[in-house]
């Protein structure tokens, strides 16, 4: 099963850390990512820029409105995402419990929606195939 792991972090907490300490935890995170990769569990991931740089799009009175991110006032923000390959939820929990990123905030584990993905894949395949008519 594939899980998308949303890594939440508290920016204030992160900025309050000694630079050397923060750097050390980052190194631990990278080392653990490498370990996940070796085990075939790391299926991709991205670190994200600060939520201050985020842009939110929403529909207001039929028009797309651009704002600076609706949830900027909440304490914890998504700092990165990690695609995890695991047997089941217990396995995913076991793997991500050891991820040092948890020291900055918390992880949210979401299984991917296989049914929806299968449907999307079918449609994509149909669009890509040569026109039968």
């Amino acid at each position: 099963m594939r899980f998308v792991c949303l890594g939440f972090f508290d920016e204030a907490k992160f900025e309050g850390l000694e630079p050397a300490k923060a750097q050390a935890i980052m190194e631990e995170c990278l080392a653990y990512d490498a370990e996940l990769r070796r085990g075939g569990h790391f299926a991709g991931g991205d670190a994200l820029q600060s939520p201050r740089e985020s842009v939110a799009l929403e529909l207001k009175d039929g028009q797309v409105a651009v704002t600076n991110g609706p949830y900027a006032e909440t304490k914890e923000q998504i700092g990165g995402i990690l695609m995890l390959e695991a047997r089941d939820l217990n396995h995913a929990i076991a793997l991500m419990s050891k991820h040092p990123g948890i020291q900055f905030g918390h992880w949210e584990l979401r299984a991917v929606n296989e049914e929806m993905n299968a449907m999307i894949a079918e449609r994509t395949a149909a669009q890509d195939s040569p026109n039968q008519s």
Binding site: F3, A86, A92, A94, L109, A111
Partner: peptide, 14 residues
Amino acid sequence: RDAGIPFAVPGDDE
């Protein structure tokens, strides 16, 4: 079903 909660007894460590 959807979150992948397994039908399993946890291992000794958990």
